[in-house]
Simulated scan of single mutants.
Amino acid sequence: MTKPWPLPFWIAHRGAGKLAPENTLAAFRLGAAHGYRAFECDVRLSHDGRPFLLHDDKLNRTTSGRGPAGLLSWHELSRLDAGGWHSRAYAGEPIPSLETVAAYCRRNGFGLNLELKPNPGQDEETGRVVALAVRELWAGSERLPLLSSFKPAAVAAAQAAAPELPRGLLIDKARDSWTEEAKALGCSTVITNYALMDRAMVEAVHALGMKALVYTVNDESVARWLMANGLDGIITDTVDKFSPV
C-alpha cells in the first residue's frame, strides 16, 4: 500500500530554479531559505551504479566535466565542480549523491520529487536501482519521495522494485495513451507541461484518483489560472516570486 501524498502545493524546481546551481545542495538550501519545503530534482546512475543528481546526459553544461555522465564512476563524479558554471559564489559546489540528498531532506522534513533520468539504455535499471535506494534511505519515514519520469519503463521498474513508493507519469506532449499508462503504473500523480493542463485535463486526472501537477510555471497570471482550475501542485523556478505559504 502506498503512503499518503508527500508533497505540498509549491515545489522548487531543481532546488531553487535558476537562482543557484541546479541539482545541488546549495540550491536546496536557497529554496528552503525562500520558504519552500519540497523540491524537484533529477537522478541518474554513475558507471558503478550510484544514484546522483544531474539533469543532462552529459556533464558539459552544469559541471567541470565533459562527456556522458554515465561513463564515470561515482568517485570521479564526486570530484567535479557543479557550481562554478553558475557563478563564482558557488564555485566548488559538488554533485550530490542521492544519499546526501536523503539525509538533508529527512533531517529537515522536506518533500522530494525525484525525476528518474536514465542514461541511454538504462530505463529499467535506473527505475529499479533508485527505487531500492529510496526504500533503504527513507526507511521508516512517513514522507516518501515521489518517483516520476517521462520514461514509462523507468516508472514500471520502480513499481516492480518498490511498489509502496508513490509514482508519477511526466508528460511533455499530448497523447491519448496517458490515461492507460498512468493506471498501469499505479501512479499517484500525472505531471504535465503546464501548457497541456486545463480544467478538462485536471478533471480527467482527478477521475483516475490522481493528483494533477505541472511544470515549470514562472508567470503569476499562469499560476493563478491553473490554481483556479483545480490544480494540485506547481513546480517553479521562481522561488523568489511565489510564496509557498
Rank of each mutant, 00 (worst) to 15 (best):
V101R: 06
E220V: 07
L170A: 06
A157P: 15
E125N: 05
V202M: 08
A16M: 11
A223H: 09
P21D: 06
A223C: 07
D219Y: 12
T189D: 12
A131T: 03
R14D: 01
R29M: 03
S243I: 00
D123M: 08
M197S: 14
D232V: 06
L71W: 13
A38S: 13
P120Y: 02
N108S: 00
L146G: 02
L147Y: 11
Y194R: 11
P163Q: 14
E124L: 12
E220P: 05
P8Y: 01
K173I: 13
L208M: 15
S46H: 06
A32M: 06
L53P: 15
R66C: 08
Y194L: 14
G168K: 02
G111C: 08
V205L: 01
P163G: 09
E203S: 08
A195Q: 09
I11C: 01
G70M: 09
W74M: 14
P145C: 05
L146Q: 02
E136F: 13
A103C: 03
D240W: 00
E76L: 03
F242E: 01
A212T: 12
Q122G: 02
E180Y: 08
G209W: 15
A12R: 00
E22K: 06
D176I: 00
V155H: 13
A33G: 02
L71P: 05
R14F: 05
A204K: 09
A16V: 04
A162I: 07
T179N: 10
T63N: 11
K58M: 12
K117A: 12
A228E: 15
Y90L: 02
P163V: 00
R199D: 11
L19A: 04
A16H: 10
G70E: 09
S73D: 03
E124V: 11
A16Y: 05
A89I: 05
F150V: 13
L59K: 05
E40D: 06
Y104R: 11
L213A: 15
L213Y: 15
P4A: 10
S188N: 10
S97W: 14
L146T: 03
R199H: 03
F150T: 14
K151L: 06
S46Y: 07
Y215N: 09
C105R: 04
A157T: 14
L77W: 07
T236C: 05
R14K: 12
R50T: 06
A174M: 14
L45Y: 10
K173Q: 06
R37N: 01
I95M: 03
R37T: 02
A161P: 12
C105E: 02
L146C: 01
D172P: 07
V190H: 06
A156V: 07
M1V: 04
E220R: 03
